[in-house]
Design a protein around this nucleic acid. Sequence first.
DNA 1: CGCCAGGCTTCTA
DNA 2: TAGAAGCATGGC
Length: 271
Amino acid sequence: MKITEKSGEILVSDFGGINLRETLFCGQAFRWKETEDGVFYGITRGREALVTQKNEDSLCFSGSTREDVEQIWIPYFDLERDYPAVLSKITRDSVVASAVNKTGTLRILNQEPWECLCSFIISACNNIPRISKIVATLCENFGEKTARGYAFPSAQTVAFLSETDLSVLHAGYRVPYILDAAQKVASGEISLAEIAEMPVEKAEKTLMTVNGVGKKVADCTMLYSLGFFDTYPVDRHIARANAEFFPDGLPSCFDGAKGLAQQYLFIVSKR
DNA sequence: CGCCAGGCTTCTA
DNA sequence: TAGAAGCATGGC
């Protein structure tokens, strides 16, 4: 990987490739916006970025410090993982191979865990445009103002809100789930940092102690924010793909990278 | 208008 | 232990 600075921009390249637009809008994260053609605005851990893609294997950050690029955004985009090696493995399966040929390199994001957990609680039986809208409303109402937008509100902040406060979200039956998650995280009853260090089954079971968190939401939280790259969340699309393509079980070439394989299958199964 | 959405909890047999 | 009902809201 190479990092170069020039005229206030920071260029990261030679990390093995990314399709930025697909990575940001394939249903892992819900806060990115394309502010103008090819320019993507995002915020995580209270840090904002404007990102553009110069070519298949480089990203340009404008308005970010070099420290933020190295400490926040390179981990966020999973740029230190060897995706060419991972892709050569999972493309032994023909379904994934055709998806990779069409889409290029999807990256599994490493999001802020509380934001990820909360977002996927909201995702239950919902569609992506509306998930994004509810998350945006949550941030605009209860997150700290930043230069260009709003940070995701902390678990501590949300834990002190009431169902009435959260009625502005129009999130329906998910509101008490959001509150239970916030209270368990804020009180320390569960520690997302500790869950990241647990064995897979224990991590999943611990997340599922939150009301409104079943296996699928737990798996998404683990995959997209806690470093469990081999976790395979099964939603209704993936369940259909499994029945159609893998009735006798997942191919062994997915082992170690089931999360990424799942992401390609998710795109395929949504047509 | 009707169908569907990156599910979960609770009730039932 | 498995399957169905109920859940709140709005995108398309």
